[in-house]
Nucleic acid binder design. Sequence first.
DNA 1: CAACGCCTATCTATCAGTTGGTAGGTAACG
DNA 2: CGTTACCTACCAACTGATAGATAGGCGTTG
Lengths: 187, 187
Amino acid sequence: MSSSSREAILAAARRTAQARGYNGLNFRDLADEVGIKAASIYHHFPSKADLGAAVARRYWEDTAAQLEAMLTETHDPVRCLRRYPEVFRKALTNGNRMCMCSFMAAEYDDLPDAVKREVQTFADVNVAWLSKLLSAGTRANARKTEQRARAIFAAVAGAQLMARSRSDVGLYDSLIEGYRTAGLLPA
Amino acid sequence: MSSSSREAILAAARRTAQARGYNGLNFRDLADEVGIKAASIYHHFPSKADLGAAVARRYWEDTAAQLEAMLTETHDPVRCLRRYPEVFRKALTNGNRMCMCSFMAAEYDDLPDAVKREVQTFADVNVAWLSKLLSAGTRANARKTEQRARAIFAAVAGAQLMARSRSDVGLYDSLIEGYRTAGLLPA
DNA sequence: CAACGCCTATCTATCAGTTGGTAGGTAACG
DNA sequence: CGTTACCTACCAACTGATAGATAGGCGTTG
């Protein structure tokens, strides 16, 4: 089939990148997982940088869709905001993985420019969604709202990172609860 | 001199690990930076895993000393707590680097066990210090105090990670300000 | 004192494994 | 015939690691 291999490569690369980052991606293991030969990947992606950028782009597109779905499903902005940490929780319960773009933020120095751009877009997407929710109903200072949105995004990413280093989803839940108690997230 | 090479290796490895992680460490570049040959590193460290563990251990030891120094310098617990983000800020102003143990938390799956242990100890050291400050004066629930300490640590690490991905210390400052506004950190 | 053995610190040379990437061929399909 | 999708075979660069040599310093012993 025309694009099933391409999609399979993207899916496998995503899984790997969420566990071992951009540097952890390699063509041989990727090809094995998909069931083709390493050289065949070049038929779908001209270079590792292009593959990385495509994977990161698809990642934020999927996340954006997921967030929008959550919004249509849970109309109340506050309830929706409360559910936000669920998105990052999933990666942990899926083999102690983490947000691909958090990993790549760490790998920043080694990232091709095209990948860097997608990683930043992931953050933008999250912050924009959070800002929308935070400003819903109240007409608060736009700058302050975005600051809050960014703080929530960064804090949740940090919680995921710490929980991963202990392979402990319970720690993640406790950290999120701590954010609620402190007032960063709605209780 | 007996240990000057060993110390130079540790220092260079630390700088690299804060920018490119454990996987970003390699014996040739490290040796070049120190001014010796790659094979000579094996005289001081039996393997890369041992080197990594030694670097991470030294890292949390230094951080612990730095935090203790801050405590004797700034007696007031609240003022001291307010200054905590300075520690993570330094890495960003030092060539857009980041906390070595945050990077290694991302690399968790690829880390030798000995390195994993040191990474976790780094978090323990930070949380213990924060807990001490948070409980000073008030006799609050110990569990709640530690939960708050962990939340602060994770949030600050997340802020550093996000700021790094934009090479923007100003963003870090803004995120910390956001944490203060939200009530996670003392204003 | 001098010869000797030994330790420390470093070197050269090399290895096997892995990496991203390339050249060029093959087979199916419309 | 041309396009798509894949293959085999290969390469240069880089990786952690090892073997074995060298040179200087230090203490012991004849």
